[in-house]
Computed example of a mutant assay.
Amino acid sequence: MSAVDEAGEGAGRRLGETRAIWGVGYLAGALYAPLAVEAVGWELAVAGAAVLTLVAGIGPAVVAAPWRRTVAIEVGDVRIRLRDARLVLLLVIGAAQLAVSAGIQGVAGGLRIAELFPAGAGVLGVVIPATFIAGAFVLTQRVAQVVWQPFAGRFADRAIDATFFAAAIVVAAGVGALTLPLDAVTFVVAGGAAYFAGLNGAIVAELAVARLASSADRPRVLAAFHTAQDAGAAAGAFAGGALAALGTGVALGVGVALVVLTIPAWALARRAQARVTVAA
Rank of each mutant, 00 (worst) to 15 (best):
I58H: 07
G59K: 08
G59Q: 12
P60R: 03
P60H: 01
A61F: 07
A61C: 03
A61M: 07
A64L: 12
A65V: 05
P66V: 10
R68K: 13
R68Y: 04
R68W: 07
R68L: 12
R69E: 13
R69H: 08
R69M: 12
T70F: 03
T70G: 11
V71R: 05
V71A: 06
A72V: 11
I73Q: 08
E74M: 00
G76C: 01
G76K: 02
G76V: 01
G76I: 00
G76H: 02
D77L: 02
V78L: 02
R79F: 09
R79W: 12
I80V: 14
L82M: 15
L82K: 15
L82G: 15
R83Y: 13
R83T: 15
D84E: 15
A85E: 12
L87G: 13
L87C: 12
L87E: 14
V88P: 07
V88C: 11
L89Q: 11
L91W: 12
L91Y: 14
L91F: 13
V92E: 10
V92R: 14
I93F: 09
G94S: 09
A95P: 11
A96I: 13
V100A: 03
V100Y: 07
S101I: 15
S101Q: 12
A102M: 12
G103S: 02
G103M: 03
G103D: 04
I104N: 04
Q105K: 05
Q105F: 04
Q105R: 08
G106T: 01
V107M: 07
A108Q: 05
A108C: 06
A108N: 07
A108L: 08
G109I: 05
G109H: 03
G110K: 02
L111P: 00
L111Q: 03
R112I: 09
A114P: 02
E115S: 11
L116D: 06
L116F: 05
L116Q: 07
L116I: 10
L116N: 05
F117L: 08
F117N: 06
A119P: 01
A119Q: 04
A119F: 01
A121Y: 01
V123E: 10
G125Q: 07
V126I: 11
V127S: 07
P129V: 10
P129R: 08
P129Y: 09
P129M: 10
A130Q: 06
A130T: 07
A130V: 05
T131V: 10
I133R: 02
A134M: 06
A134K: 03
A134P: 00
G135F: 05
G135W: 04
G135H: 05
F137Y: 08
F137P: 01
V138R: 04
V138C: 03
L139G: 00
L139M: 13
T140P: 02
Q141N: 08
Q141K: 10
R142G: 03
R142D: 08
V143L: 15
Q145K: 14
